[in-house]
Design a protein around this nucleic acid. Structure first.
Lengths: 344, 344
DNA sequence: TTGAAAGCGTTACCAA
DNA sequence: TTGGTAACGCTTTCAA
């Protein structure tokens, strides 16, 4: 490898300034306008075939790539759909959903961008997003308040969608019914004859928005029955699971809802290592219906959450963008159903 | 909820056009320049305290958010670091790494953005990224060719880093030594006395770039020995795993390297369901050192990959941005080490 | 301490 | 069929 001293007489072409449409125009011997017409296939004007070719060749030769910022500045809008990048490791279910959504939105000619907003609280994050002037913002989880929505709309976002446990004023909300997930699990365990029911509450910060409603759902399902609910704080580590498992017999629980399948795997392992039999001594049910649940022995019962398909959600975004007047309060409740396997 | 007919006399303020710095200036009774000075804390110029206050108040009242595109258009550069969003579900290891990286880059005042480039092949993707004029591009995995790098650099990217199995001309490369991972695994199994060694090759499209070098690494480790290597095509589904497990005794293997821990879990389960004892009949080793490996019984041996810390990588990006001349060929080799548990 | 004006790269209108 | 030109929102130099 040749080390380059001071003078950039490198083998690779010297770092020229980046080519603009003006450069293309100059090289092709036409005006900037013509370049724009050709490269955008503008149908309103007809450009002669030889000219088109010259423009295309010039563009290719220079390695011209249009400047998105300039374009959207001129146009007054962009086709960017912004989502915050997940700030914590996210399950398979959700990451598949994201991919599907990105694909569907690309088909509709949107550019999907995940903004790495770490360490930004609520409104700061909203402002950071707003600087990019996205045409739509899709926020999973909680954390966006009504003020945030307002900031985004004021800065030109034609649609703000939330996908989370609670409705946010001014935004289209897709309600993930975490409370319903808990309710499902609780009702299922009760129906299987269990009465002393534990509920795992992850200790990882930020999970509270999801875990609390799930817990409440269990409580509601068991309201007015003779069943009891016991909270089980659990960190995602073997030590934490072992600690709980060691007290298990003392706790006297005959069932546990583990928040999700990943925590289920963690806890089941610890329980089995303690000699607790599943489901005879303790029934276990998870949530999210991940692949690992099917691979556990006994196979894990779980609560399946009916996420919208990426395609549906993409359509929803597109509609909201095209008709910003359309009842911003619309919301859909996403269902939960039990998948009964062998662990309960 | 009030349905809005035609006239947008909504309860929420009518969708005014988005406020610009000119609007702020008008409301505060100053010039646009002054607004810019105040909001950017420009030190070269001293603005009286009362004026500052008026500007800040006006900005807050209008909900003004600066327009990033206009700013970077004028400035001639941005602080955006672009990464392609992962196109397939990604392990815990990697997603934690991404988070750490995003955090570290934010600390250095970069905006991190993951671009959802689905269905775009190599150079198309590079062009799409180039339109956003990122100051740096970080590409995990394969798929970016030298032409792509050239496009990005020509459009002003001051640093292009790849994090993958092979070096790309013109880019800083962090080499993930997949071949070394396979070599580790192969050497380990051989050292444990195994001689008929299977290697799982995921059938999912796009994994070939990673799985092939891992396979080759095993081959190299066993070169010149009496051990044999058998390729085992496996899809990430229970059926596929069951199919392989059914033929297992006929295959006569005494060890298997499962590409990673997730495939290990899948295959181990199928083998155990067939009554194959691990590690007595067949030793198993995975890779990536995921949490699930510790939860399997027997505990899974695995190959740990030494990823750079997010902080280190962020520094590397920053350096590359500030000194674009700095030997674009630099590369680091990231090590792999065996974590020996009970499955081998 | 503040204001006027130029210019970043694009596109769209109007004139040639 | 093509070219000139203004405008998008912002920063910055120069002048007042």
């Amino acid at each position: 490898m040749v080390q380059i001293p001071k003078t950039p007489a490198a083998p690779s072409p010297a770092p020229r300034s980046v080519p603009t449409s003006a450069d293309v125009a100059r090289l092709a011997g036409v005006s900037r306008a013509t370049v724009s017409y050709v490269l955008n296939n503008t149908s309103a004007v007809r450009i002669s075939e030889p000219t088109r070719r010259r423009v295309h060749e010039a563009a290719k030769e220079l390695g011209y790539v249009p400047h998105a910022a300039a374009r959207s500045l001129r146009a007054g809008h962009s086709r960017m759909v912004l989502m915050p990048a997940p700030t914590m490791p996210v399950g398979l279910l959700y990451s598949q959903f994201i991919n599907e959504l990105q694909w569907a939105l690309s088909r509709l000619d949107y550019t999907v961008v995940q903004h790495g907003s770490v360490g930004l609280r609520g409104d700061e994050a909203a402002r950071a997003w707003a600087e990019l002037r996205p045409v739509a913002v899709l926020v999973p989880g909680a954390g966006l308040g009504p003020e945030g929505v307002e900031v985004l709309k004021r800065s030109g976002a034609r649609a703000v969608l939330t996908l989370g446990p609670e409705k946010v004023e001014g935004a289209h909300a897709l309600l993930l019914d975490h409370e319903g997930v808990g309710h499902c699990a609780g009702a299922h365990l009760y129906g299987r004859g269990r009465r002393r029911i534990g509920v795992v509450v992850p200790e990882e910060p930020g999970m509270g928005v999801f875990s609390r409603p799930r817990l409440e759902g269990v409580r509601r399902a068991l309201l007015g029955t003779d069943a009891t609910v016991t909270e089980l704080p659990l960190a995602y580590s073997e030590e934490s699971a072992a600690r709980i498992a060691a007290q298990w017999r003392a706790l006297g629980l005959d069932a546990v809802f583990t928040y999700n399948d990943e925590y289920a795997m963690l806890l089941m392992r610890a329980l089995q290592d303690e000699g607790i039999r599943i489901p005879e001594d303790t029934a276990v049910i998870g949530a999210d219906d991940l692949m690992i649940g099917r691979l556990l022995r006994p196979r894990l019962s779980t609560v399946h959450i009916q996420l919208p398909s990426g395609h549906e959600l993409a359509e929803l975004v597109d509609t909201a963008v095209r008709e910003p007047g359309g009842a911003p309060g619309t919301h859909e409740l996403l269902g939960a159903t039990v998948v009964h396997r062998d662990s309960s």
